[in-house]
């Protein structure tokens, strides 16, 4: 019983949140890695693309809510998601047309594109703050819990509860569906194959008649979709605030690099590696240990390795360790 209680407490505060957070990071990292694989630069505006997509979704959600449209127990934001994706896709396609295409034609060095993406980041950040303001916004509605802590306790008779929030379930299910769709697209469809060919060897792809502008456009649309979904899921789970999306940039890049930049499978693995280490290192183990240890050994302190404010330090430390010992990432990334 004690052991079960400890396990439930651990699941409630570590495993379930980390899986949800890992899914959000993985979706974000997939976007970064796709841009890197095909357009060959690190897109610093990605966090703000997420924020923009999420913002459009929120605005449409509010509109739906005001008209009384909802999904019952599910958040209305899911219904608004396609609009958010469309908005973000339009924005990134316009940015590509007006900004990035010029440098592509020039074959500018990747670092120049990174600086350009910094400028784009400023603009997108300004746009989002201009439209929705810098404050936090709540837009989750519907049923809050699938299993609430109290129900779990009465169901199982344990003294620890396991709360399973709707937003966590939706995050996990959506992430699985999106990743499956993405891999089906990349591996089975003609466009997906041409994207992979373009990523592997640009010159060869051009020689075999692949239209680069088409590949780039598809990439941006997919990236916009991934970014919006990741942004909305994160917002449903933890609330929307423009600045937090900028801060997500670091764990997202860490995920993509740890997994191997340019490798989609690596991005997913990296997302979960980063999420689990952030949550496990910053969790206070007191509760779990009280169940596991005999009374005489029970800890009096929180038994927290690092305070939660240092969660960025965790993702950063892992990033540095991987870069030092395995610079191509856990899965072989695109190193060119």
């Amino acid at each position: 019983m004690e052991f079960l209680n400890a396990f439930v407490a651990f699941s409630n505060f570590v495993i379930v949140p980390a899986i949800a957070y890992g899914s959000q990071l993985a979706l974000g990292a997939l976007g970064v890695t796709l841009i890197y694989g095909i357009l060959r630069f690190s897109n610093f505006a990605h966090g703000d693309t997420m924020a923009f997509g999420a913002m459009v979704t929120i605005l449409v959600t509010w509109w739906f809510q005001s008209m009384g449209i909802n999904l019952g127990p599910m958040p209305t934001a899911l219904l608004a998601l396609p609009f958010g994706i469309a908005g973000a896709a339009l924005l990134v396609l316009a940015t590509d047309r007006m900004v990035y295409r010029f440098y592509r034609a020039q074959k500018a060095a990747p670092v120049i594109l990174v600086i350009v993406s910094m400028g784009v980041m400023f603009v997108m950040n300004g746009l989002v703050r201009f439209i929705i303001g810098p404050d936090g916004q709540q837009f989750a509605d519907g049923e809050r819990f699938i299993i609430s802590a109290r129900n779990f306790k009465t169901m199982t008779g344990l003294s620890e509860g396991l709360a399973f929030r709707t937003s966590q379930a939706i995050t996990i299910v959506t992430a699985v569906i999106v990743v499956a769709l993405l891999f089906w697209f990349l591996n089975k469809t003609r466009t997906g194959k041409s994207m992979r060919a373009f990523s592997d060897n640009e010159d060869l792809a051009l020689l075999s008649g692949i239209n680069p502008e088409r590949v780039v456009a598809y990439t941006w649309i997919i990236v916009a979709a991934l970014a919006t979904i990741a942004g909305v899921l994160y917002g449903l789970d933890k609330g929307f605030k423009p600045f937090t999306y900028f801060q997500l940039l670091l764990p997202i890049f860490a995920s993509a690099i740890v997994g191997g930049l340019g490798n989609p499978l690596g991005a997913i693995a990296g997302g979960f590696v980063i999420a689990f280490s952030e949550v496990t290192v910053t969790y206070a183990y007191k509760k779990v240990l009280i169940y596991l240890l005999p009374e005489s050994l029970e800890p009096s302190t929180l038994v927290q390795l690092l305070s939660t404010d240092y969660k960025f330090a965790v993702s950063f430390a892992i990033l540095i360790i991987v870069l030092l010992f395995k610079p191509t990432g856990l899965f072989k990334g695109n190193t060119a």
Partner: peptide, 22 residues
């Protein structure tokens, strides 16, 4: 590589601020 240095410096700046805040 240059973008790795960028991420590393971005990260260290966040960490310095986090340490000083906490």
């Amino acid at each position: 590589r240059s973008d790795y240095l960028a991420i590393a410096t971005l990260g260290i700046a966040e960490i310095i601020i986090a340490i000083m805040k906490n």
